[in-house]
Simulated assay, not measured.
Amino acid sequence: MGQPLMTELITPQGSRSVSAILFDKDGTLLQFVSLWGSWSECFLKHFTRRLEERGLPVPAKQIPGLWGTQHDTEGHITEVDRNGPLAMGTMDDLYAILSWQGYSLGLSWAESMELVHRCRLEADALLDRSRPALPLPGLQRFLDELAAQGLPLAVVTADETAAAEKHLDWLGIRQYFAAVVGTDQVERGKPFADMALLACQRLGVAPSSTAVIGDTNGDMRMAKAAGAAVAIAIADTRSGSSGQRDLPDADIIIESYAELHVGGMDR
Rank of each mutant, 00 (worst) to 15 (best):
Q3W: 08
A125E: 13
D81S: 08
A154R: 02
M195H: 01
P59L: 03
G37K: 01
A206M: 12
A96E: 14
P85T: 11
I234V: 11
A87P: 05
V156M: 13
G27K: 07
V186T: 05
K61F: 09
H46M: 10
E114I: 00
A158V: 11
D144F: 02
V212L: 15
A235F: 14
D24N: 12
S256T: 11
S256R: 09
A233D: 13
A110C: 04
R174M: 04
D249A: 08
K224F: 01
L134F: 02
G68K: 08
P59G: 06
R188N: 15
F142D: 02
L247Y: 08
A147N: 12
N217M: 02
A125G: 07
F47G: 10
D215F: 01
L151M: 11
D219F: 00
S40Q: 11
D124N: 11
L139H: 05
L127T: 05
T11N: 08
C200K: 06
M265E: 09
G172F: 03
L127V: 11
L98S: 13
E111S: 11
E8N: 12
Q244C: 04
R267H: 13
S208A: 15
R54G: 04
Q62F: 06
A179N: 06
I63W: 09
L98F: 05
D128T: 08
R245D: 14
Q13L: 13
A193Q: 12
I213H: 06
F177Q: 08
S40T: 10
G106H: 05
M88R: 12
K45I: 01
S34C: 13
T157N: 03
A148P: 02
F142E: 07
M265I: 14
M1D: 10
V155Q: 09
L168P: 06
M222A: 13
G55R: 09
L22H: 09
W67H: 12
G240L: 06
C42F: 02
L56W: 05
I254Y: 01
K61P: 00
L168F: 06
L5S: 13
S99Y: 01
L115H: 02
G182M: 07
W109C: 03
S256W: 02
T73P: 00
F32N: 03
L134V: 13
A235S: 15
D72F: 03
G189T: 07
D92P: 00
I252N: 02
E145A: 13
